[in-house]
């Protein structure tokens, strides 16, 4: 078994490492022996044709696959050196360190304020009402949404536009002060302007956070990420510096996929 991992070329130190990861849904193997480092304060894009296992692999990073009955994860995944699949790990706490934003914005049926305050409340992160308000406002600002909603924090989150709802979900993830934010096709339901705003936001967020994004848009991967990993049929075909992957990939399969020659 191969234990040598393809270490990222970027030189940045990894905050997460995956080694020899296999994922099964029942008998069906969805991820086959994948090793990948996630460099800190960078954006890593996972690309590949639909069904190649991008979302499955992403969900390994905060044990979201635990919620799927038939799903089994094997291999070694470490966050800041700690094995996240250790039975002693508090999964709820883990998911506050490693937040997630989904394809379809899913605000709770609550006010804008309560959407963002939800996480800090259940994790008892705030010392007072003022402090909670502080966290909510800072998070909305970091998600680039505050200016647009500052005068209507008590309106329902669902009253916002699609792009705003997605930024609300980003604010909600940020509110519990995570290290890593996982995003699964966060812009696929958004128009180009709303997409551009989120991409711009991601770029500014990487100073403070590490982002892993699944995207079906290669242009988006090329625009936002520093590292790109290409998946095909459950395997990691190639990963490395984004510029390298999109100008001169090593593997023919990558070359063919990104230049539109396999589906």
């Amino acid at each position: 078994m191969n234990t040598d991992a393809p270490v990222s070329d970027s030189g940045a130190k990894p905050i997460m490492t995956a080694r020899n990861v296999d994922v099964f849904y029942g008998k069906k193997q969805a991820i086959d022996n994948v090793s990948l480092d996630i460099p800190e304060n960078q954006i890593t894009a996972l690309i590949g044709p639909s069904g190649c296992g991008k979302s499955t692999f992403l969900r390994c990073f905060n044990r979201m696959n635990d919620t799927i009955q038939i799903c089994r994860v094997k291999g070694d995944i470490k966050f800041a050196g700690q094995d996240i699949y250790d039975p002693k790990v508090d999964v709820v706490a883990l998911r506050s360190r490693i937040g997630m934003v989904f394809q379809k914005a899913n605000p709770f049926p609550k006010s804008i304020f309560d959407n963002v305050a939800y996480g800090p409340r259940i994790h008892s992160l705030s010392e007072s009402k003022d402090h909670l308000e502080d966290i909510v406002i800072t998070s909305l600002k970091r998600a680039g949404l505050y200016d647009e909603v500052s005068d209507r924090l008590d309106e329902p989150g669902t009253s916002l536009s699609g792009g705003q709802q997605q930024r609300l979900c980003i604010a909600r993830a940020i509110a519990v002060d995570p290290q890593i934010i996982l995003m699964d096709e966060p812009c696929s339901a958004l128009d180009p302007i709303a997409t551009a705003i989120i991409e711009e936001l991601m770029d500014s967020m990487k100073e403070k956070y590490t982002i892993v994004i699944v995207t079906h848009s290669m242009q988006q991967a090329a625009r936002v990420s520093q590292q790109t990993a290409f998946f095909h049929l459950g395997e990691l075909v190639e990963s490395g510096d984004t510029k390298q992957i999109f100008t001169n990939p090593e593997k023919e399969r990558t070359q063919n996929y990104i230049s539109g020659r396999i589906g």
């Binding site: 290669m218 242009q219 090329a222 999109f246 100008t247 001169n248 990939p249 990558t254 070359q255 990104i258 230049s259």
Partner: peptide, 9 residues
Amino acid sequence: RQPFAGDLR
């Protein structure tokens, strides 16, 4: 077309 890789080069 936004070509990539060999096409882009």
